[in-house]
Design a binder for these strands. Structure first.
Lengths: 118, 118, 118, 118
DNA sequence: GTGGTCTAGACCACC
DNA sequence: GTGGTCTAGACCACA
C-alpha cells in the first residue's frame, strides 16, 4: 500500500508513475514491465486496478502486450510520454499565468520558486 | 448549458467561476449574488448543484446568507479568494517544475511563455 | 440472458448491438441510451460488463456521458459507426475473395448468395 | 518471430498457415511436415504453441502422427481443408451481406471489389 | 506462469 | 437516481 492521493483514480496515478519510470530510463524499449500480478502486489492494489493502468497505456501506444508473456515498452514510449506531458503542461500553464497576474504574482516570484525547487 | 469540463465536479467549477467574478469586481462586498434559482437557470444545471456551490463558498467565508434574501459577498471575500488560490498555486507549482525538468523544459521556456501569455 | 456467442467478449458484442440500433435509428443524436443498470438488467449481464461496452463507445466518440444523467448519442455517431464498420469490412473482403478463388468459388456464387440473403 | 495478429490465437493462425501451404501443394499427402521443434524455431514461438496447432489439425484428420517420426499429411487433407474453409466462408457471408445493406453497400460494389482484388 | 473476461458487491461523487 | 472506482475472486485462453 503506497502513497496515493484521492484526487485522481489510482489507476491513473499508477499509469503516471510507470510513465515516469520509463522516462527516467528504468524501463527501456522492448523491456518487459512488471506483470499485472507483480505490480499489484508491489503497490498493494487489486489486479484489475493494475490491469486498467496497463490497458490505458497500451491504448496510448506506450506499452504493448505479447500474449502470455507480459507487457513491453514500445520504441516510441518516451516520445509519446513526453508529448503527452508537455501537451498537458502547456495547456495548464497559460491559465495559471493569467490567474497569477490577477493575484499579483510576478515572473520574478516564479523564477525564485523554480530555483528553490528540488 | 455552459461549458464545463468533466475533470472536476460541476459545483466546484461553478464556485470557481463565481470567485473569479468576485475577484474581477463583478460583485463587490455586500452585493447580492444571483439566487440559487437564477444561477441554475443561467447555467442550465440542477438547483442542488448551484446550492452546493454556494454552500461551499459560504463555509469558506466568501459569501454569507441572509435568510429569505439570498447570498451576499463578504468583506473578506477578495482576500480569502486570493489566499486560497495562491495556496493552491504554490502547492501545484513545485511538482510541475520537477516534471518540467524531466521533460527538458527550462526556466527560460517558462519566462518566454509568461511573456507571451495574454 | 440473451444470445451471445463465445467467440468475442460479451462487452464487444453489446457495443456492436448498440451501434446497430443507433444505425437503425432506434436512438438518435442526443437521445439518451439505456443506463448501465437498465442495459445490464435487459441483457442479463453484470453492470461492469455493460459499463465496459459504454466506456469503449465513449472513447470512440459514439456516445458521450453527462454526469449523473446517463449516456447520450453524439451527433457524429452514425458517421463514426459507418466508417468503422466499412473499414472493417473492406479489410476483410479482399482476403476472403482470394481464399474463395483458391476454393473455386466464383463471383456468380456470391451474387446468388447475396440475392438469397434476407 | 513472424507476423501474427492478436485477434486470433497464435496456434490457430499457425494451423491456418499450414493448411494454406498444404492447399498450395507445398506439402503433399504422406509428406512429412516440419517437426514441432523445427516449426517452433522457424516461427519463433513456444513449442507448446506449435504442438497445439498440430494437435488440432490432427483431430480434424488433416495430418496424422507416426510415433517417433513426426506428422504427415493425410490423403484427405486437401478435401477436408477445402470443406472446412468453404463452410466457414458460407457461414460468415450472409451476416456480412446484411451489414453491408445497412451500410448502403450494394452488390455492384462487391462485384467491383472482386474484380479489383489480386 | 502470463493476460483477459466476467461476476458480485461495495463505496463514492454527482445530479 | 446516474456513472465511476475499487475490491475479491472465479474461470479461461495462451505461452
Amino acid at each position: 500500500m503506497t502513497e496515493f492521493n484521492n484526487e485522481r483514480p489510482i489507476y491513473v496515478q499508477m499509469a503516471d508513475r510507470l510513465c515516469d519510470e520509463i522516462l527516467a530510463g528504468r524501463y527501456k524499449p522492448d523491456d518487459r514491465v512488471p506483470s499485472v500480478r507483480e505490480y499489484s502486489a508491489m503497490l498493494g492494489v487489486n489486479m484489475n486496478t493494475s490491469f486498467k493502468a496497463f490497458e490505458q497505456l497500451s491504448r496510448e501506444g506506450i506499452i504493448y502486450n505479447r500474449r502470455g508473456l507480459g507487457y513491453f515498452v514500445t520504441q516510441e514510449a518516451c516520445r509519446l510520454i513526453s508529448e503527452k506531458k508537455k501537451k498537458e503542461l502547456m495547456n495548464r500553464l497559460p491559465q495559471m499565468f493569467r490567474q497569477m497576474r490577477l493575484l499579483g504574482i510576478g515572473i520574478s516570484d516564479i523564477v525564485q520558486l523554480w530555483n528553490e525547487t528540488e
